[in-house]
Amino acid sequence: MILAIASGKGGTGKTTVAANLAVCLPEPVHLLDCDVEEPNCHIFLNPEIKSTERFTLPFPTVDENRCNGCGECSNICQYNAIVSLKSKPLVFPELCHGCGGCSEVCPEEAITEAKREIGTISSGTWRHITFVQGLLDVGQSLSPPLIRAVKQHCGTNGITIIDCPPGTSCPVIAAVTKSDYVVLVSESSPFGLHDLDLAVDTMRKLDLNFGVVINRVSSLDHRVADYCRNAQIPILLEIPDDRKAAEAYSQGLLLVESVPGFRELFERLYNRILSESSQNRKPTPENKRDFEDIA
């Protein structure tokens, strides 16, 4: 089973849920950190890294002797990464998405593809967990291809947990697609509620089965829980607003091993996910909203 841990808002506790849940799961467990801009799972697990590979994207190089300056490459490129003027085309690798259009279309076969490095994929183990992480190079802008590459390491059996990037745009889509169940982590605050609503829309648009974990639950604000009940979204777990938990997190400690009561919470979460995902109950589609409707 592939289990994605996502959220609309950043900093709600995705990594906390992903890492602590992974520890409570029976073998075999894969934990993939797909928050490639800021991966943090390793801080809590300290895995022994056994292999690292540089991740590359293709980009065009032009054989000057073959190029006849026809400009077909420049016409097909939607990203303005290759431009043909009077001379040999100019290539801007940082704009290239690696679609291969220019090399396919070149009538003189003057374009071949070279590789540019945009990040690193490292993998290792920690206790019974197989750990894989993607890390985007600073200054690089294109994270979805790296996320897709990390996801090639999903386990063939047992449970694979994917720690996703925040938001609702393309990196999140790349991280959550093809998962069997999504855990949306929200926090009990107005910002948390607003961003949860966006994340819920995203999951419905993708037709994914999901439930919600509410983090930092306090007596001040019940709106996230009320929202879930109204929208018939299962609340998988409520994590109390606990200063001890925040302090343990700050030191990079696993809550299930340092704060009393948390192991039970996460074991309960695991059982709840198992029963929810096997029911294959998709939350009611009637308030599925398209972008046009909110416009």
């Binding site: 939607q78 990203y79 303005n80 431009v83 003027l85 704009l95």
Partner: peptide, 15 residues
């Protein structure tokens, strides 16, 4: 209209 590389496209246009 370019999502990126507007200056590249504009340079191509005037060239």
């Amino acid at each position: 209209e370019a999502a990126q590389g507007a200056g590249i496209k504009a340079a191509e246009t005037i060239s």
